[in-house]
Design a binder for these strands. Sequence first.
DNA 1: CTTGTATATGCTTTATTACGTATATACCTC
DNA 2: GAGGTATATACGTAATAAAGCATATACAAG
Lengths: 109, 109
Amino acid sequence: MASTFAILAEPNRRAILGLLAGAERSVGELEERLRMPQTSVSKHLRVLREAGFVEARVDAQRRLYRIRPEPLMEVDAWLVPFRHFWEKRVDALERHLDRMAEAKKGKKR
Amino acid sequence: MASTFAILAEPNRRAILGLLAGAERSVGELEERLRMPQTSVSKHLRVLREAGFVEARVDAQRRLYRIRPEPLMEVDAWLVPFRHFWEKRVDALERHLDRMAEAKKGKKR
DNA sequence: CTTGTATATGCTTTATTACGTATATACCTC
DNA sequence: GAGGTATATACGTAATAAAGCATATACAAG
């Protein structure tokens, strides 16, 4: 039942996700870049996989892991009620971008 | 040395922050709304306070707690490298704006 | 200054979890 | 199929942290 946040509490797991943010990577690559034992990497990947943060695809003996965004989107959504504490003028920018997107739709017809 | 995420891993603490997102509240109010023992609320508040998530102001015997945004901003910042996984809309808009800028340059010549 | 109210802290127990070590599985090459 | 490479799992141990209960501090009201 470990929550999204409990899973992100582990620094090595965040490091793994950080590496996967840029590109799909094999267990061996993660092991090497993070300088941590392979069993440890595999165990963290299992936790991340079971919680939906990553998925693997098989390439011969290797497993190539990549990000699944859903749980991170949850975190993003959880932050919503707090954003007004720091996003004063970004709101204005977003409204501006939304207006432009609308204008684009209008012109297309 | 508990990280920002480790602190958010505790569900009761997230609940406290959720309540404080809307308004400043006393310990008693939190205790009542969350239906948890006062000592528990106080202990979680201590953790949140020491990590900079909240601050208290004194009102007679009561302490009124409120959000401090900094640690949550960190979380928001941590998400940045992952946002492109789900924020297609903004990406598409940006590409569109780039194309329009290019087209304009072309026409000018 | 005594009593009640509001909040904080200390101690003990229990549960969770990360890590190391050893081992298992799977696939590839010869 | 033997040996090597890549990854996963099982088990034991140690560290961490949440919860319960008791108690302490601080202010207020009479």
